[in-house]
Design a protein around this nucleic acid. Structure first.
Lengths: 204, 204
DNA sequence: TGAATTATGTATCGATCAACACAGAAAGCA
DNA sequence: TGCTTTCTGTGTTGATCGATACATAATTCA
């Protein structure tokens, strides 16, 4: 199926990946069109022709981020044989991902646009929705643990899901502060220490 | 000691407090001079005459924030009779402070400037330093718990301090997402569940 | 080959950014 | 009463923001 008109001279997906990295490092409003076009290797008219607007580009970038960077973390959650291992691997993968060198530290979804503004309501809403989905995924895995008898029937899955999702968010700020992998794993150790008490008595 | 020249027609401290609230809600780069002067009820030359620059104003605002908003949280840490109660009250005060209505949600120190940039290195450094001080205060209180015999000698104060500081940071993002007080207290419950395991076996 | 279509590069749009020039106003000091 | 000092309001600065106009280049379709 050949395309009409002059073909694009850059790789759209590669350019999107570069844009994702800029947004990841600088946040939505901290990333200017100049920053983006410089990293993408194109001029601004090409950016607008290919992606529509800065906002639309950001939404595509977060989707790419979710697929590319989130896979390891969330597959760990699904594939682990027990809920406890699922949560632990989820957090350990997070620690690993947030402390990789040569890339921005912390999570684009968590840090990309925290300050709501009339001009970026859609951006904040999108990220909020994705953060809520993270908690939902945790919640589903915990409820599975209850259904399978691994966890007591009175285990408070909602509290635990909120807690572990919040810990992960905190790890993004910790990573932005330059925390080493071992420092992030300290947080993981603390969070997993909570598991014992939560699983044995029901939450808190 | 009377001042020379025309006296200021606005209350400098009150104006600073307004500026603090704007920075708190919008972050450093999200708060424009127009936003600030509108909230402070002054024109920009008065702002620059009284505070020097946007950056200097922000640094004063964070200092005011630390003194005004941080007092309850950190006095809870110092005054509680046991380390455990200290940490729990610290987190519960955090949940309370982060979910008060009629004010920005979450913490100015945690959320004010997460994306480093050449133009705001001093801002990021200042906030990072204050976040590090939070962890240090937690660490000192925990070490006191060990010294007083409340906690076992092999209790890993560093790990626990990192963990609880990170939980608090996560609560800022949770609060920004509109979490209710009870949702924040779920996170507190999870974090305190970790205490039992950490204090009984040494950290994780 | 020529018309239609799409992408690219240059150059720029109006808006807004942080910051300030300037003149007049309001105080203390002589 | 001047004189000095400091603050206030109007207006504006150059830079940068996100987003486009426009002409040209490169492709498909007829």
């Amino acid at each position: 199926m050949p395309e009409r008109g002059r073909p694009r001279t850059f790789d759209r997906t590669a350019a999107l990946r570069r844009a994702m990295e800029v947004f990841w490092a600088k946040g939505y409003e901290g990333a200017s069109i100049s920053d983006l076009t410089a990293a993408m290797g194109i001029n601004s008219p090409s950016l607008y022709a290919a992606f529509g607007s800065k906002e639309a580009l950001f939404l595509e970038a977060t989707e790419l981020y979710t697929q590319v960077e989130g896979t390891d973390i969330w597959s760990a959650l699904e594939k682990a044989p027990t809920a406890r291992q699922a949560v632990e691997r989820f957090l350990r993968q997070t620690a690993r991902a947030y402390s990789q060198t040569g890339r921005p530290q912390g999570c684009l979804i968590a840090l990309g646009a925290l300050h709501q503004d009339s001009s970026r309501g859609a951006i904040c809403d999108d990220l909020r929705r994705r953060r809520a989905e993270n908690r939902e995924a945790l919640l589903r895995r915990l409820e599975r643990g209850v259904a399978e008898g691994e966890l007591p029937a009175d285990f408070d899955c909602g509290t635990a899901a909120t807690f572990y999702a919040t810990v992960q968010h905190g790890m993004s700020i910790q990573a932005r502060d330059g925390a080493s992998r071992s420092a992030l794993l300290e947080t993981v150790a603390g969070a997993m220490a909570a598991w014992i008490a939560m699983a044995s008595t029901g939450a808190a």
